[in-house]
Write a protein that binds this DNA or RNA. Structure first.
Lengths: 126, 126
DNA sequence: ACTGTGTTATATCATGTGTATAACAAGTGG
DNA sequence: CCACTTGTTATACACATGATATAACACAGT
C-alpha cells in the first residue's frame, strides 16, 4: 500500500484517501476483487483515526468503487454507472475549463494534457 | 447580472459566486475592464451577507481574475499565468480522469466532452 | 472463548462558513 | 464642507464539518 497523506493540505484526509484509492484503481495498482486493509490497520499504518478511514471507505462505497463484505472488509468492486459519471464529469469540467479558457489555454492544449494523463490509466480491461 | 445561488448546495456560497463569475468571463458575459457590483449591492441583490461577497471578490483577486480599484470597485482584470494554471489543471484532472477511467469512459469520450464545453468558451480574443 | 471484521453512538476540539454590527480611510458629487 | 458610497478591517455569534477519542455492538473465523 502506497498511501501518502499531506497533513498540511486543505483537502480533508478522508478525501485524500478516497482520491488515492481511485487513483490506484485507475493506474491498475488495485484490481477488482482486491481487499483493502481494515479500517483499523490502515488508520494505524498512516497514523490517523479509525473513523477517518471508515469515512473514506463509506464514501467509496456510496460512489460505487468498493463493496463491503462483512467477512473480508472493503473489496474493490466497481459499479460503472457511465451516464451518471459523465454528467458528474461535465459539471466539474465546466468550471475547470472556464478557468483554463480565461488563462488562454487552448482546446488543443487541454486535449494534450488529457492524453498525457490518460496514458497512465489503462481502462478496466488491463 | 445573472447570478444564481443554490442555498441547498454543499458548495460554499462564496465559491459559487467565484465560479459563476469565472464562468461569466469564459462565456464572454464579462469582459476585461468590466466593473462588478459593489459588495453591498451584490449582497443585497442575491440576499446574502456583504462579507460573503467580499470573500468571493478576495478569492478572485488572489487568483488573478479581478483587480480592485478603490474608486470603482472590483474590475475584471485577468492575470494569465499560464504555467501555474496548467499545473493546477493537471492536479485537478488527475483525479477527475481517474474516476472516468474507472467508469470505462474512454479518452475519446472525454475529448468530445471537452469540445462540447469549450464551444461556449471563446478564448480571450473574442 | 478469543480475535478481528465493519458499524454505531457519544463526546470533544479545531476549523470553516455565514451572518451581524460596527467602524475606518478614501474617493465622488452635491 | 458634507453626505454618500467604495473597499477594508475587526469582533462576535451560530452552525456545520473534519478529526480525534473511547466505547460498545453484531458477526464471522480460528
Amino acid at each position: 500500500m502506497i498511501l501518502e497523506l499531506n497533513f498540511n493540505s486543505d483537502e480533508a484526509l478522508y478525501i485524500q484517501l478516497r482520491n488515492q484509492i481511485i487513483l490506484g484503481i485507475a493506474t491498475n495498482r488495485f484490481h477488482e476483487g482486491d481487499v483493502l486493509p481494515s479500517v483499523r490497520q490502515l488508520a494505524d499504518a498512516v497514523g490517523i483515526n479509525m473513523h477517518t478511514v471508515n469515512k473514506a471507505y463509506t464514501v467509496l462505497k456510496q460512489e460505487g468503487f468498493v463493496k463491503v463484505d462483512r467477512r473480508k472488509g472493503a473489496v474493490i468492486a466497481i459499479d460503472a454507472n457511465r451516464l451518471e459519471a459523465i454528467e458528474e464529469m461535465r459539471v466539474e469540467l465546466k468550471v475547470l475549463l472556464a478557468k483554463a479558457s480565461c488563462r488562454n489555454i487552448s482546446r488543443e492544449e487541454v486535449h494534450a494534457l488529457i492524453d498525457e494523463i490518460y496514458e497512465e490509466y489503462g481502462g478496466l480491461s488491463q
